[in-house]
Simulated scan of single mutants.
Amino acid sequence: MRVSPVVPGGLEGHPGLNSVPSQAAPGVRTRSQHQRRKRIVQAAAALASRGGVEAMQMRTVAERAGVALGTLYRYFPSKMDLVVAVVGEEIDLLESSIERRPPNAATPAGRAVDVLMRATRGLMREPELADALIRSLIITEVDTPFGDRMAGLLLRAAVPGLTAATATEEQFALTGSLSSVWVYELLEMLRGRRTYEQTQRRIEIAADRLLAEF
């Protein structure tokens, strides 16, 4: 789950266009803030990929991102808020991948499995980061949209056109349960208790049962 900011040129400061700077400035500031937040999240992810959550010390993240410590705390009041942001970035990347290359399995369960195993491969490229994020999700007291976002993503993959807004409560609950199974199996894989093949097989079994009526 990267576009550089485009700063308008030529018009700002032009003597005949005195109103333009005041109108453009908020947008420029917004882009600047967005890019600064991106740098912080990327710095945190890079540190976690080498040493887990323990390596994500706020001062170290600020130094790596090139921002003042006070600025970092304005964006992320705590380390767990930062962890949640890194998780969100990973989901953004997964959603982009699904949009570019939608799963083409013949069944809803098969398409959901495709999404989850694609996510698994992506996370396992950085096992330290994956371990840090999964463990943090389990213990965090910070409100995170991870479960709902994954459930919504699985809904859209399983049945094209279906969304969290149009799905039944049961459908949303079932994809949420499948997401929970995936998190557990991924954690077992990170602990060395599952091979990739075993993880995939268990997720396939769960998907076939949970999404049988889709």
Rank of each mutant, 00 (worst) to 15 (best):
A109L: 03
L187H: 07
E141V: 14
M58N: 05
G70T: 13
W182N: 00
R100D: 13
R121D: 14
Q198Y: 02
R64A: 13
P77L: 00
V142F: 11
H14P: 03
R191T: 02
R202Y: 11
V183T: 13
V115M: 02
P127C: 08
T120E: 14
A167L: 01
V6K: 04
A68C: 00
G10N: 02
E54C: 06
A45C: 03
R111I: 05
M56A: 11
S19L: 07
D208V: 10
G51W: 00
G110A: 00
M150F: 06
R201W: 06
P127W: 03
A157W: 12
E128K: 15
R156H: 15
I203P: 10
Q42L: 09
G110H: 02
L72C: 02
L116F: 08
W182S: 00
G13N: 02
M56S: 04
E141N: 13
A132C: 07
S177M: 15
L17C: 00
G152M: 14
D148K: 14
R156I: 03
T199D: 02
Q42F: 08
R149K: 14
L174M: 15
A157V: 12
D143T: 13
E90R: 04
R59H: 03
S96E: 14
T168Q: 11
A206S: 13
V20N: 04
P102L: 07
K79V: 04
P160T: 10
E188L: 09
A207W: 01
R31L: 14
L69E: 14
R193N: 15
E99G: 09
V3F: 09
E90T: 09
L69I: 06
N18D: 08
A165N: 06
A106Q: 13
R64V: 14
A46H: 02
P8I: 05
L178M: 12
D114V: 06
D143F: 11
M80A: 06
I40G: 08
I134W: 01
P127E: 13
K38E: 15
P145N: 12
L186D: 05
L137M: 12
A25S: 10
Q23D: 10
V20W: 03
M150I: 13
L93F: 11
V142M: 13
E54W: 03
T195E: 01
Q23F: 07
A119Y: 13
T30Y: 10
E204L: 09
L186F: 03
T166H: 01
Y184P: 00
R31I: 12
E204S: 07
A164P: 01
Q35T: 14
R36L: 15
R101S: 08
R31W: 15
G152S: 08
L153F: 07
L82E: 01
T175I: 05
V84R: 06
P108V: 06
A173K: 07
A24C: 04
P15M: 07
L69K: 06
T60R: 08
N18Y: 01
E90S: 04
R100I: 11
A130P: 04
R135K: 12
L154T: 11
L123H: 12
Q200L: 08
A207H: 07
R121Y: 09
Q200E: 15
L211F: 08
G70Y: 05
E128S: 11
